[in-house]
Design a binder for these strands. Structure first.
Lengths: 294, 294
DNA sequence: TCAAAAGTGTTGGACCTACACCCATGT
DNA sequence: ACATGGGTGTAGGTCCAACACTTTTGA
């Protein structure tokens, strides 16, 4: 076989004879929002929420789902997620990072679709949701996960944990439940997770994607500063602490928390007043802050 | 517009009218190998290495590259990377994780190709490399990165670091050099990295993918146990320390290192003898070990 | 007046860093 | 004999968890 140059090769190259899947770009957008206030003195309770859209087209018409779009010919992923959020939810300028690419052959009933999922974080205080293209409705849903069953088993080179997880997404109008089987295998401490959907009120394999994204978010809070993307420009330290407490899923001690994040924030001259108690200083993120590893 | 059922919709659905890219699955396989031994008493010097294949087909024929394959119709990503390593390098049973999906429109001269890159880690002591399908040659290359220039600049909400990085991949026969421009933007401490290839001896945008993978590997060593995937079943603590030193890029103190990893390993009854000094105990990974966060 | 949150100080213990020292081996 | 790595002990400092306490506000 004689070698040919690339330009010669490319002239004759016909990609249509090879298999090509459709590729979509999905945005899993989280926020932390007030749920209720009992008492004029008390701080409102906050919860982790996710943005869902009600599909206005087949398949899964009328089902709630993570917003996503098919990638276009001349668009990179950053462009496509931004377009997705702009078209479907009228949201722009938010923190976005690529999460994971889902490629199991039968995840979409239409045809082979590979989905590149992204995580978005936003402070939703001043966000007005507007349903966009092919979207019947759009809303924030409070996230609750509950482990129904848990089982540990020894395997070669490690152990295996099988969990039955119930993911509940709800707001004032709607409750969506999904039950998943999550199998976490640890061989030499390498985590491999297999997820099966037992039942789901969501479209496609979106419960899997959601569970994965929630896990990643909670994990990254521990060693990065992503949580600040959920805050407004200026915030009180107690509100920041509430956000950390929700994501880390545990109570923190005020004095210790403040020492820990002290380098990451800068005091402003503003105060949050008229709250039925002593006004609290507002802080902003210290843009000079640099992550310290080891 | 009247609603129709999914089964009705799917009967008529024709995916061919939508844009579809090609999708490939790439494997960036790292190992740590002995480079040289000066002295019968001294431990051999070790280096981080990566597996490259010399392309046997257009485009970039005769260029070294990261092994990759196009995804097939009924194959998920795990399957495709494994097939890639099996077909191209005759390697199986290694640690693999999905890294990042590359989708910029012009990254492949043939057609729009989206690449899902994976990181593989292996102990190469008993690995025989054999060039496979469409591969002219296969080899391990020592990785060296050098920062030629570095510049810090203040920007809105943070700062920006511009680096000129030289990535050198070499073995006894070949030296491959790539120069990249790496722009790291930190807004609210969110890292966004833009990379441009200035010059490259590798195929496609593979220097970018490599730089990204190296960064991720070095980062994950700090808070996970992935480094153990680079070790054989049984190893001495000094060899483990060497691996950590290479990945963390700094010298560690023996006594402290041993205390730190003491929970992760279990003593065996075997010894590494005939080394010109006191024999060292061999250890293996403690499969009962559980990562402790915070 | 007082409930609620804002905000700060202290103390004991765990862990980390740096260094020092002895041990065992093969040539 | 001795160079080389194997292997362990300790002192000082830093950091963190837990708790206690004072301050300030608005209804």
């Amino acid at each position: 076989m004689s070698k040919i140059s690339d330009s010669e090769f490319l002239k004759k190259y016909d990609s249509s004879s090879f298999f090509k899947p459709s590729v979509s770009s999905d945005a899993i957008v989280f926020t932390i929002r007030d749920i209720k206030t009992d008492n004029y003195r008390k701080l409102p309770e906050k919860k982790l929420q996710v943005l869902l859209v009600k599909r206005g087209e087949n398949p899964f018409i009328d089902k709630w789902s993570i917003p996503g779009v098919f990638i276009q010919e001349k668009e990179n992923f950053e462009g496509s997620v931004k377009r997705c959020l702009d078209e479907k939810a009228n949201i722009s300028d938010i923190y976005l990072e690529q999460l994971y690419t889902w490629g199991s052959p039968k995840r979409d009933p239409r045809t082979r679709v590979i989905s590149v999922s992204h995580m978005g974080l936003i402070n939703s205080d001043n966000i007005d949701l507007k349903p966009g293209k092919n979207v019947e409705d759009i809303a924030w849903f409070t996230i609750n996960t509950e482990i129904l069953k848990e089982e540990k088993e020894e395997i070669e080179d490690g152990y295996k944990i099988t969990e039955e997880v119930c993911l509940t997404l709800e707001n004032e109008k709607t409750v969506l439940k999904s039950v998943l089987n999550v199998i976490k295998e640890y061989r030499r401490n390498n985590e491999i997770i297999y997820t099966n959907i037992i039942s789901s009120d969501l479209a496609f394999d979106h419960p899997k994607m959601l569970i994965y994204a929630i896990e990643r978010l909670k994990n990254k809070v521990e060693y990065t500063t992503i949580a600040f993307n959920l805050m407004p420009k200026e915030f009180t330290l107690t509100k920041l602490q509430q956000v950390y407490e929700i994501l880390l899923d545990k109570k923190l001690l005020k004095a210790n928390f403040r020492r820990k994040i002290s380098e990451m924030v800068i005091e402003t001259e503003h105060y949050d007043e008229n709250q039925g108690h002593r006004p609290s200083k507002l802080f902003r993120f210290n843009t000079e802050y640099r992550q310290q590893y080891f």
